[in-house]
């Protein structure tokens, strides 16, 4: 598994996201390419934008022959949902994700009410 490569892609996505957020208006791939600190090929930028759109991170609208991209407004919610999705796919998530409470069984619920009412 190319962990390093995936990580690099993640870093690029973060940079593109920052550019789009600073832009304050939908940008096309050429705009993004010129605003990025890295010297990336146009096709690479298009690939990243397309992938981010496919992941649901960006919205896009047709503008002539190209697309203009903008970040999805609900970014925190999106990141959280993405995290939930990834963690749900991890077989060992129980070890790394410490939830404040687990869900209760019906029987536990009654027991808990009794415990709390006892005080």
């Amino acid at each position: 598994m190319a962990g390093g490569e995936r990580r690099a892609a993640g870093a690029l996505e973060a940079e593109v996201m920052t550019v789009l957020q600073r832009g304050g208006r939908p940008l096309n791939a050429a705009d993004v390419q010129s605003l990025l600190a890295d010297d990336l090929a146009y096709t690479t930028v298009v690939t990243i934008l397309t992938r981010m759109h496919a992941k649901g991170l960006l919205t896009r609208e047709k503008d002539g022959r190209s697309f203009r991209y903008a970040p999805v407004s609900d970014e925190p919610g999106l990141v959280a949902r993405r995290m939930h999705r990834t963690m749900a796919a991890e077989p060992d998530r129980q070890a790394v994700l410490a939830r404040f409470v687990d869900s209760l069984s019906d029987q536990d619920e009654q027991l808990l009410r009794d415990l709390l009412d006892g005080r």
Binding site: F100, V101, S103, D106
Partner: peptide, 10 residues
């Protein structure tokens, strides 16, 4: 207890 009850049962 409050959070567990508010989160619902499974």
């Amino acid at each position: 207890g409050k959070v567990a009850l508010a989160s619902g049962t499974a």
